[in-house]
Computed example of a mutant assay.
Amino acid sequence: MKFPRDHDNKPAAWRLSGKRPEKVWERFSPSYETQLERMVKLLEKKRFSVEIRGAGSEDGEYISAIRQSPYRSIFRMLEDPREALFISEMDDNELEDWLEKGDH
């Protein structure tokens, strides 16, 4: 997966704060793309198969990750402002632990 991603012209789940994406929960903003890339890399490091789906939907884009051994599946919303802000406050170790343990 290449970051930052190319725009897909699908609508945002939440109203944008300005004329273009700027906030960490606004698809294709620099902070959104950086945060998504960080999550993807951490999950792939833990042997997860990662997909990004839901673009343009009412609930917004989400990350879906599955690991076969030991089995674990993760589903995290990316465009939810509260979730995005919560994730952005974690360093890589905290994020990795949070994703792995499922404390959410």
Rank of each mutant, 00 (worst) to 15 (best):
F75M: 10
L43A: 02
G56K: 03
R72G: 06
V50I: 06
S49L: 09
D91F: 08
K46W: 00
P81D: 05
N9F: 12
E51G: 08
L99G: 06
D92L: 02
L95C: 07
R47S: 15
R27P: 02
G56W: 08
Y32P: 08
E89I: 03
P21N: 08
E96Y: 05
S49K: 11
F86I: 10
R76W: 09
A12R: 07
E89T: 14
E94G: 10
K23I: 00
E44M: 07
E100F: 10
L43I: 01
R53V: 15
A65N: 09
V40E: 00
R15V: 04
E61A: 10
E26G: 01
A65Q: 08
A84R: 04
E58H: 10
P30D: 11
K41M: 04
R82D: 12
E26K: 01
M39R: 00
R47D: 15
G54K: 12
K45N: 14
E37P: 00
E100P: 06
K2P: 09
K41L: 10
H104W: 13
P81T: 03
Y62R: 14
G102H: 01
Y62K: 13
L78G: 05
P4D: 10
Y32M: 01
K46T: 01
I74L: 12
R53P: 01
M39W: 02
K45W: 05
S69G: 02
M77W: 09
S73E: 15
S17W: 07
E51L: 12
P4V: 05
I63F: 03
E61F: 00
I63D: 00
E33S: 04
P11Q: 09
T34E: 14
E51Y: 09
S31F: 00
E89M: 11
Q68C: 04
R15Y: 08
V24A: 04
E100G: 04
